[in-house]
């Protein structure tokens, strides 16, 4: 999470996201094991699928951003400023 907040490179932000998603999945599995139920593992399968989709979209956006700004610095892409 710290990586997500302090890194400026979009790739690292994405990686941090992946780590966070996996951490949440791990928490599910552990909790499922702890309670002796299979729901936690089923949820991890969902999370894997969503993470894959998210990476696909995220990388596509990263590519587009790189095409546009020739950089992966997120602070440059701040056109939504009010």
């Amino acid at each position: 999470m710290i990586g997500l907040l302090v890194r400026r490179n979009l790739l690292f932000i994405l990686m941090s996201l992946e780590v966070m998603v996996n951490a949440a999945g791990l928490a599910f599995v552990v909790a499922g094991a702890g309670h002796g139920q299979a729901d936690g593992q089923a949820m991890f399968i969902f999370i894997l699928a969503i993470a894959a989709a998210e990476v696909a979209v995220g990388l596509a956006l990263v590519l587009l951003l790189y095409h546009r700004y020739r950089t992966l610095d997120v602070d440059v892409a701040s056109q939504l400023r009010g």
């Binding site: 997500l4 907040l5 997120v74 602070d75 701040s78 056109q79 400023r81 009010g82």
Partner: peptide, 18 residues
């Protein structure tokens, strides 16, 4: 006042969410 919160910076938004 309110427009100044909309910085357009991704990390600012993420930090606020956190």
């Amino acid at each position: 006042v309110l427009r100044s919160t909309q910085t357009g910076r991704l990390r600012w938004y993420a930090a606020v969410i956190v």
